[in-house]
Computed example of a mutant assay.
Amino acid sequence: MPTLAELGFPEANLDSLFGLFAPTSTPATVVQQLNREVDAVLRDPGLRGTLLAASNTPFAGSAADFLRQVQREAER
C-alpha cells in the first residue's frame, strides 16, 4: 500500500488539533479567563504526562495563537 507522500500528498498532516471554540459574540474578558484556566490545566505536570504518554502535545498559548494554528491547518 503506498504512503500518502507516494500518492502525491507529501505535506499530508495526520495530526489532530483539539481546542475550545466560542461564539464570536463572547466577551473578550470571558475568552481571556477561559484561556488562563485552560493554560493553567495544561501546565499541570500530571496532565502533561498523561497527554504526552498518549502522544498528544499540549499547546498553551493565547486565543490568537490558537487561531493562527487553526488557520495554518485549514490552509494545508
Rank of each mutant, 00 (worst) to 15 (best):
M1Y: 10
M1Q: 08
T3N: 11
L4D: 02
A5G: 01
A5I: 01
E6I: 02
L7S: 03
L7K: 02
G8A: 09
G8D: 01
F9M: 08
F9V: 00
P10W: 09
P10L: 02
P10I: 01
E11L: 10
E11F: 03
E11Y: 12
E11I: 02
A12W: 14
A12Y: 05
N13L: 13
N13A: 10
N13E: 03
L14E: 01
L14D: 01
L14P: 07
D15T: 01
S16A: 09
S16C: 15
S16L: 15
L17E: 03
L17A: 08
L17G: 03
F18Q: 10
F18R: 04
G19S: 04
L20P: 04
L20E: 13
L20F: 13
F21M: 10
F21I: 09
A22E: 13
A22I: 05
P23G: 14
P23R: 11
P23I: 03
P23A: 13
T24Y: 14
T26S: 14
T26K: 14
T26G: 10
T26E: 02
A28Y: 08
A28P: 15
A28W: 11
A28E: 08
T29W: 03
T29Y: 07
V30K: 05
V30M: 04
V31I: 07
V31N: 03
Q32E: 09
Q32L: 10
Q33L: 05
Q33M: 06
Q33H: 11
L34H: 13
L34T: 00
L34V: 02
N35A: 12
N35Q: 14
R36T: 04
R36M: 02
E37W: 11
V38H: 01
V38Y: 07
D39G: 01
D39L: 07
V41Q: 04
V41C: 12
L42Q: 03
L42H: 09
L42K: 00
L42R: 00
P45Y: 07
P45E: 06
G46I: 06
L47G: 02
R48W: 08
T50G: 06
T50I: 13
T50P: 10
L51G: 00
L51R: 00
L52T: 12
L52Q: 08
A53D: 11
A53W: 11
A53L: 07
A54L: 02
N56W: 05
N56I: 07
T57A: 11
T57D: 07
F59S: 00
F59D: 00
A60W: 00
G61L: 04
S62I: 05
S62E: 07
A63Q: 00
A63T: 01
A63I: 01
A64H: 10
A64K: 14
A64R: 13
A64I: 06
A64V: 09
D65P: 12
D65Y: 12
F66E: 00
F66L: 12
F66H: 01
R68P: 03
R68F: 12
R68K: 11
R68C: 06
R68Y: 09
R68Q: 08
Q69A: 15
Q69S: 04
Q69F: 15
Q69E: 09
Q69V: 13
Q69I: 13
V70R: 04
V70Y: 15
V70C: 07
V70A: 13
Q71H: 08
Q71G: 02
Q71R: 11
Q71L: 15
R72P: 11
E73F: 13
E73L: 15
A74M: 15
A74I: 09
E75P: 02
E75N: 02
E75H: 14
E75I: 01
E75C: 00
R76M: 13
R76D: 04
